[in-house]
Design a protein around this nucleic acid. Sequence first.
RNA 1: AGCGGGGUAGGGCAGCCAGGAGUGCCCGGAGGGCUCAUAACCCUCAGGUCGGUGGUUCAAAUCCACUCCCCGCUACCA
Length: 658
Amino acid sequence: MKKFYITTAIAYPNSRPHLGHALEITQADAAARFYKLSGKDVFLQTGTDEHGLKNWQTAKKAGKDIMGFLDENVSVFRDLFARLKISYDNFLRTSDKEIHYPAAQELWNKLVKSGDIYKRKYSGLYCTGCEAFKTEKELENGRCPNHSTRKIETVEEENYFFRLSKYRDKVSEIIERDEYKVVPQSRKNEILSFLKIAEDISFSRPKATLPWGIPVPGDDKQVMYVWCDALSNYITGVYYGRDNKKFKEFWPADMHMIGKDILRFHAAFWPAMLISAGIPLPKRLFVHGFILSEGTKMSKSTGNVIEPFEQIEKYGPDAFRYCLLQSMPMDGDGEYSEKSVKERINTELVANIGNFCYRVLSFLASRYDSKFSKIDDDKKIISEILDIAGAIKLDYDSLNFRNAIQNILRISSIGNKYFQDNEPWKLINADREKTEKVIGTCINIVKILTITLKPMMPDFSAGMESQLGLKDLRWKDINFELKKHKIGKPAIIFHKCEESIAVSAKEFPLNIKAARIDSVKEHPNAEKLYVLDVDIGKEKRQIVAGLREHYSAEELKGKKIVVVCNLKHAKLRGIESQGMLLAGDDGKSIGLLTTKAIPGTAVLPDGLTGNEKEISFDDFMNIQIIIKDRKPYADGMLLKAGKEEVLAERVKDGARVR
RNA sequence: AGCGGGGUAGGGCAGCCAGGAGUGCCCGGAGGGCUCAUAACCCUCAGGUCGGUGGUUCAAAUCCACUCCCCGCUACCA
C-alpha cells in the first residue's frame, strides 16, 4: 500500500520553539492520526532546517561549535514534540550528511541536467563587519547597526540561479486545476497572482559569505542557498536518490502543511523544481495562518509571549492540543489566550464531553455491575449522531478542526440531553430493562466520542478506551453495534481548571464571621434543607443549609459556627439564603466548622484584612479551603476567629470546605 | 502607500465562494426544571437595523461598486 505521506515545514532551530511550531506539528499530527484511524498507512515527517547564516552567527556569538549548538537546540524541539504526543515517523535534519546531503545534491544535478541552473552576477549591500549582505531596511543611516564605524560596500558576487520563470505558466496551470491543490482558496489566488510575475531565483551563495551549507556539486566555492537545501527535505527524507523503489512508495506527498509566510516557496519554487527534475508533484498544500495573542503577534516587547512548554505543563497535552486546533480558522489568523483555554477546559471538556462520559459509565458501573446486553434502538438519535460523525469525517479530511470540535460537542450535547430526557435514575425503578437499553445506547455514544476525539486528544481517547474496555478503536467502529458488553472502571479524565482567585497579600476575599444558630426550621419545600436564623454579631441572617441528612435540628440549635457573609444572596427552593455556613466534606461525612469565638468575630488568616465585597457563588467555589488536623487552611494559611481556633467536626484530613 | 485579513446579540466565532425568513456554536445575563454526573446536566426567555451608502435581483449578511473603521505583513528566513 502506498504511504499516506504528510509533511510539516521544517523548523529553523536558532532559538526555542514557539507556539507556531506547536500549532503546525499538532495540526499535522492530528491529521496523521485521523488518516491512520481511517485505515491509511500514514507517514509523518518533520524536522529542522539547520543551515544558513543565522544559525552560524548565533552559534558563533554563543561561542559554540555549530553542530553542538544545533544538537542542543534540536533536542529542545524533539522534547516539545514528545511532550505534545506527536506521532512522527521521521525527523529529518538538513545537517545530516549521510542521507540529506547526497540526495539534495542529486536533486541539484537533475536541475542542472535540465538546463535550469545558470550563473549570474548578483549585487548587494555588504557589511564587512558581519561579513554578510544587508537589505536597505536593515541599515541605519546607511550603516550597519552592529558595525556603525564600518562602511557598507556594494559587492557583486556570482551565484547560481534557477529558471523559475520558465515554469511559472506550467505551475500556474497545475495549481489552477487543483492537481496540486492549494488551500484555502485565498492562498491559491495569492500564489496564482505571484506566478504571473515570478522571476528566476538565486540558488546558491559563495562559500565565503555563507560558510554553513551544502556544497554545490562540482563547484567547491559555492554552497546551496536554502531552496534546494531545505525544500528538498520532503523527498530526501523518503529515500530520494537512495532507493527509487522505496521512494515511489512515499512520493508524491499527500500533503504539505505550512504557514502562510512560506507560501511562495512551496507553491511556486518547489513545484517548479520538481517539474524540472522530472519528479511528480505533491497533492495538497495546506496553508495555515499565524497564531496571535491578544490580537497581535507575540513578541517579547509586548510581553504576550506564550511558551508551549509552559502550556503543556499547566493544562496537559490533550487540552493544549485541543485549544491549539480550535484556535485556528480555516482562513486568516488564530487567537490563543489562556483565558479561553481555561474556559474551554471547564465548559467543553469537563462539563460537556467529560461529564457525559463519566455520568454514563459510572451509572452503568454502579447500577448494572458494568454490564449491559441490549441497547435502545432510538432511530432518531442514532441517525442524527451518525450523520454528525459523517460531517466530522469531512471536517478532518479538510483539516477543519474547529468545525470538527463543534460537531463533536454537538454529539455530547445530544448525549447529555438524551440521558436527561430519559431520566434513567428514575426510570430504573419503573423499568429496569428500558433503562439498561438507554445506557447501552449512551455507551455507544461515548464510544463514538472516543473515536472522533482520537486525532486531537490521544491521551483522553486512550483513557476512554480502557474505561470502556475496548481496544484500538477505528473510524469504522463508529456505529451502534456494541449491544452486549462489559466496561472497565470509570474515572474522571478532565479536571476542572480552577480560576484561582488571587488571595492577595493583604486582603482575604471572603468575609467570614463567627455566628450562633438561634433557630432551626425545616425548609417547607425541600427535604434536605434547613432554614436557620443565625446571629452574626450586629445583625441576624437567614441561612438555608443542606444539613438535614447530617444534623438534627436539636444538634444545631445554639451551635456556634462560622458563616460567609459576603456571598451573593440566593434563593434556594424559594427561600432566600443570606450567607453560607461552612462545613468540611470529605466525600463521606459533612462536618460543621465550629468556634468558641463570640458571634461577629472575623475569621481570617493571620495578618490579612477582611473584605466586604460581594462575591459570586462561582468565585467562592474557586477558593480552596482544606481541613488539616481539624483546622481549615486557605491557600496554606490557617483560618482563625480572632484568638480562637476554628475546628471542623466529623471529617478527615483533606476534606474540602464548602 | 502597497499587499493581506477582518467589522454578524454583552464577549468570542461560524454562515458568505455556489443569494431564499437572522439560521448556528461557545461564553455571559434572566427565569425554571432535575439530582445519575466534576455546582455538573436539561428547558425557556431576553438581546442583532449582519460597519455605512448605493446598485443587481422576485429575494442580499451572502453578488457588484463606493465608503468608514480595526488589525497584520511589507525580511533573498522554514
